[in-house]
């Protein structure tokens, strides 16, 4: 277990190093940082000073080393577009994205797992058939279209829910939250549904497929033959093994949610990191792009590593494989 942990951490560090190198290359060779940071009427001398101050005259290796050290401390320089430290911008936006992703993920799990179990246990029921059709639609209809339809119905036609922004937020000093006000919670509903829908259909299909698979295995048949009641059979024995792959996929999808939040945030003008990133792409604001890339990769890598570790803890078969097999 310990060796596995070390190996996973080294692997994660390598991925981060690759990502940081890409970020550095973008930062160094995409556009001219000097002309982006100085006003239009800067003199040649101003430029030279700026160049020296930013260390752009040093050898590339030295610059690279400095970039990595700064990045590890969360310093990504100044945004080209609004001349503020990138780390401040991201820190400001982070709570909005985190709350959105958290609510969407909980929603997807809370609905996806029960619906998946239901469709697996009653595959012929009309509700199951209907859900299968809806899930197929959920996978084919682009998420931004779902978002627009939600706005059309609930904001434009019915006027029940706001279509943009976070509503009133409470500033806790280091974190701004929309959970504590009515308008904040109302603003959260539509974006969270839009973001959760795709993940929910995915989890539902996965739970259904896994559950059907598990119900066919010998140990369930034996349990049935022993006369164990259905309820116990399904929820005590089958569900446990169903949820192991669901856990892995969900962990990976959590990263996906952060990326998909870019689209949701654009549709609902949600002031999160994704919205910041898409504006940065639009204006080629390289420091923001690079910082977002590094931050999101870091979150991904942490989640992936944790999921791998959890997988090992949850599934004893994986641990057994490491030892020499006994018998056949």
């Amino acid at each position: 277990m310990f060796a596995f942990l070390i190996r996973r951490i080294i692997q994660a560090a390598l991925v981060m190093l690759v990502v940081a190198s890409i970020a550095f290359l973008m930062f160094r060779f995409l556009g001219d940082p000097i002309s982006n940071l100085l006003p239009e009427d800067a003199t040649v001398q101003d430029r030279a000073e700026m160049r020296e101050k930013m260390g752009l005259n040093d050898p590339v290796v030295v610059q690279y080393g400095r970039f990595i050290v700064d990045a590890a401390q969360g310093d990504f320089g100044q945004s080209y577009r609004n001349n503020r430290p990138v780390s401040d911008l991201l820190a400001e936006r982070f709570p909005a994205t985190a709350e959105l992703v958290l609510v969407a993920a909980s929603l997807a799990l809370a609905l996806g797992i029960p619906l998946g179990i239901y469709t697996a246990l009653n595959p012929r029921g009309w509700l199951s058939q209907g859900l299968q059709v809806i899930s197929l639609l959920g996978i084919s209809v682009p998420t931004f279209v779902t978002g627009i339809l939600l706005i059309l119905v609930f904001s434009v036609s019915l006027g029940w829910l706001p279509s943009f922004g976070r509503g009133t937020v409470v500033d806790l000093g280091w974190w701004t939250t929309g959970f504590l006000t009515v308008s904040g919670l109302k603003a959260l509903i539509l974006p969270a549904i839009m973001l959760a829908l795709f993940q929910m259909t995915l989890i539902m299909r996965l739970v259904r497929a896994e559950m059907l698979e598990v119900l066919r295995t010998d140990y369930i048949k034996f349990a049935k033959a022993r006369g164990i009641p259905n309820r116990m059979l399904h929820f005590k024995y089958a569900l446990k093994n169903t949820l192991i792959p669901v856990m892995t996929i969900f962990g990976l999808q959590l990263g996906g949610l952060i990326a998909f939040a870019i689209i949701t945030e654009t549709v609902f003008q949600w002031p999160g990191m994704g919205f910041l990133f898409i504006q940065a792409v639009n204006f080629t604001d390289v420091p923001v792009m690079a910082a977002y890339l590094v931050l999101v990769s870091f979150i991904f890598v942490v989640i992936n590593t944790l999921v791998d570790l959890l997988y090992n803890v949850a599934d004893p078969r994986l641990r057994a494989e490491k030892k020499p097999a006994r018998g056949v």
Binding site: V15, G255, G256, A259, F260, I262, I263, F277, I278, V281, M289, L293, V296, S297, F300, V301, N304
Partner: peptide
């Protein structure tokens, strides 16, 4: 593969 395709495409 460890990144969502939409993010890679955006970058």
């Amino acid at each position: 593969l460890s990144f969502p395709p939409i993010l890679v495409a955006l970058l």
